[in-house]
Design a protein around this nucleic acid. Structure first.
Length: 429
RNA sequence: GUGGAUGUAGCUCAGUUUGGUUAGAGCGCUAGGUUGUGGCCCUGGAGGCCGUGGGUUCGAGUCCCAUCAUCCACCCCA
């Protein structure tokens, strides 16, 4: 009856300590870059009014039409688990009138996002993203800064097989005239495309550029691209962004066929891909959203940002060195006889109070097992409480790296006031 | 939502083709070899509703059907 195992929901997963360690390293690196670039951290709620996303991301987008976790609360309000971070940040920006307090608002976030898609490699229903947003400037220099931040984070995480692609997808009017030219180009040859592309042509024609079939790619070789329909002004904006990137020594590639999935994107768009990831190779993507603030009820304000998928970043990161030989400063207390357990406990507490890691056996295991555990704990010292030494008020300090060991004064150890004294006591012998 | 693959020990998997006593290996866990000490080696031990339900059969991990779950790919996205 009660034996049914409850498992994590399809598309969600536990991040166990070994993995969480890498996770923490990533967020620490992101946080460091954010500090360097002067972006402040922002927490927004994990669920929001459904309307925020339908209005922000686009009523017709895939994310909104079929991928959101939407539910009603006790007040019969329609709420949605956030599928992405930008809409919430912009909502917060408007709600707190951040724009009137400072000209340019630079923030970053990290946390879980939710999309009801079919899971596969590098894709989950609850997944984690971090992202940067800069709201309030249309100057090309901010484009370059935030792209640089994005790129530098990936660099600092040691991701080598990455490529930065940039493009400009213009503004609605430009897109309109391009769309017409594109349709005129496709219509006569539409029959030659695959079924998916035909479907795309009806719903979101530019998506045809994403098709992986050789035949479709060949047919699109000379198709008009948005980039060639940019206004002089926007073209200049993009060129200036590129100049800034060149100046900063950031290598990128112009990808005129790059398309964005979310409706709010305008002008500058970019993507970082990692070719060893397989099908889901985009680890990070971003762009301008110059109409979004207004769309969500704020004053017309340009914005720009990016988001990166932490799971994908993890897949792209180089294999970490096998743990084993790695030892951290810390102490594992071992007792030769159970009557010393209280002494061990007191010692552990004492060392922790000094601000240092310490642990002991809580399973009443044999000496051999305790030593094994000491080894696995990754601490570089064990302290063994043994009969002969204890009788003389001493304990055995064993170096778990080079196996040298010697006696130390147990009383002295308990009287140590800080980590430096402890270090000296250990170092003296 | 569509297509393909896979479910056997905590983990990675063998065994399924050709049904036949108590279902295996490596790693991990645990106790010992070492009467005072981890890593290497050796020996023992624990740990399995063979995903679930039904069917065929004297007999099913193995064959058939259903179902659930997971993975990969498409779609889309980070």
């Amino acid at each position: 009856m009660s034996g049914e195992k409850i498992k994590a929901i399809y598309g969600t997963r536990d991040i166990l300590p070994v993995e969480a360690d890498i996770w923490r390293k990533i967020v620490t690196a992101v946080s460091k870059t954010a500090d360097e670039y002067n972006y402040g951290f922002i927490h927004t709620p994990i669920f929001e009014a459904t309307e925020l996303f339908s209005r922000g991301i686009g009523e017709a987008s895939d994310v909104v039409t079929k991928e959101m976790y939407t539910f009603r609360d006790q007040g019969d309000r329609s709420l949605t688990l956030r599928p992405e971070g930008t809409a919430s940040v912009v909502r917060s920006y408007i709600e707190h009138s951040m724009g009137s307090r400072q000209g340019l608002v630079k923030v970053w976030y990290a946390g879980p996002m939710f999309r009801q898609e079919r899971p596969q490699a590098g894709r989950f229903r609850q997944f984690y993203q971090f992202g940067f947003e800069a709201i309030g400037s249309l100057d090309p220099s901010i484009d370059a800064e935030i792209i640089a931040a994005n790129y530098n984070i990936m660099e600092s995480l040691g991701i080598d097989d990455k490529k930065l692609y940039v493009n400009s997808i213009g503004m609605p009017e430009e897109r309109k005239s391009h769309k017409k030219a594109f349709s005129d180009f496709i219509k006569p040859i539409l029959d030659e495309f695959c079924v998916d592309c035909k479907k795309r042509f009806m719903t979101n024609p530019l998506r045809m550029f994403d098709c992986k079939r050789e035949e479709c790619i060949a047919l699109l070789k000379d198709a008009p691209v948005m980039f060639d329909y940019l206004s002089a002004e926007n073209r200049k904006h993009f060129d200036t962004v590129c100049e800034f990137l060149n100046h900063a020594g950031i290598s990128y590639e112009l990808d005129k066929k790059m398309v964005r999935g979310l409706d709010y994107y305008t002008r500058t768009a970019w993507e970082i891909k990692c070719d060893k990831l397989g099908s889901q190779d985009a680890i990070s993507g971003g762009g301008r959203y110059d109409l979004l603030v207004e769309q969500l009820g704020g004053k017309p304000t340009p914005g720009i940002g990016f988001a990166a998928g932490i799971e994908r970043v993890m897949l792209a990161m180089p294999e970490k060195e096998p743990e084993g030989s790695r030892k951290n400063f810390g102490f594992f207390i071992v007792v030769r006889d159970s009557r010393y357990k209280k002494d061990a406990f007191g010692l552990v507490m004492k060392i922790r109070k000094l601000g240092l890691p310490a642990d002991m056996d809580y399973l009443g295991r044999s000496l051999k097992a305790q030593m094994k555990q000491a080894d696995k704990s990754g601490f570089c010292y064990s302290i063994i409480l043994a009969e002969d030494e204890m009788a003389r008020g001493k304990a055995v300090l064993r170096n778990m790296v080079d196996s040298r060991q010697f006696e130390i004064e147990l009383n002295g150890l308990l009287k140590v006031k800080n980590a430096i004294q402890l270090g000296e006591m250990i170092g003296r012998k």
